[in-house]
């Protein structure tokens, strides 16, 4: 993916705003930001962002491409949509954050071990297997995302939680074996594959 990164950086040179507008989900709304800061103040995890959305938008204008894309800020988005509904300028902040995060992933510049990025990918991979999420496998894969040792530790730590859920009938060991899947998984796979191709073409086109 770093080829794409080089290509995009070369193409848009200093104009990161244009790059964002071209390839990031809802990126065309970024230019409307007037730096009021309501998004930054509205974010429930705001204090954990090295660069809150309003600052990211200013950094985009200032051409701080690497600083933005390599930041873990946008991975802090909980998708609560507080910022979007309060934004006076219609900037699609939540989506832009998702878009930037995804773009960073595509470019391969996400900070190593970024937990939300990992979970996000695991989730997607999980649902891609059979069209529906297998919560048990997803949970386990998250425990084990940092390796076997950590996984056991995590699993032990959350044993009680898991037991409780099973007791309540809200987690089933059966999931591990069979689990919910859709019937027309083949058709589903074809559909998403095609969508992925179109998505890829967008980036390839933009890089040219």
């Amino acid at each position: 993916m770093s080829d794409l990164n080089t290509a995009m950086a070369a193409k848009y040179r200093a104009n990161f705003l244009k790059e964002v507008e071209a390839v990031v989900e809802e990126g065309e709304t970024v230019k409307m930001c007037m730096q009021c800061g309501v998004c930054a103040g509205s974010c429930p995890l705001g204090k954990h962002w090295a660069h809150p959305p309003q600052e990211i938008f200013m950094m985009i204008r200032a051409g701080k491409r690497d600083e933005v894309l390599k930041s873990d800020s946008m991975w802090m988005c909980t998708s609560c949509y507080n910022c979007i509904v309060r934004c006076p300028r219609g900037v699609q902040i939540t989506h832009v954050m998702h878009g930037l995060a995804y773009y960073a992933k595509r470019l391969g510049v996400v900070p190593e071990g970024q937990p939300t990025q990992q979970v996000s990918q695991l989730f997607w991979d999980n649902l891609m297997k059979g069209g529906r999420v297998n919560e048990l496998k997803l949970g386990l894969s998250i425990y084990f995302k940092d390796g076997f040792g950590d996984g056991i530790k995590n699993a032990m730590a959350n044993q009680k939680l898991g037991m409780n859920m099973m007791k309540a009938g809200r987690m089933s060991p059966m999931e591990f074996l069979s689990g919910h899947t859709i019937k027309d998984n083949a058709g589903f796979q074809k559909i998403i594959k095609k969508a992925q191709e179109i998505e890829d073409a967008k980036f390839d086109g933009a890089a040219k």
């Binding site: 979970v119 989730f123 997607w124």
Partner: peptide
Amino acid sequence: GASIGYGGGGELP
């Protein structure tokens, strides 16, 4: 895709 799938799938998928 829920609110977390974005990081894996991207917009159109």
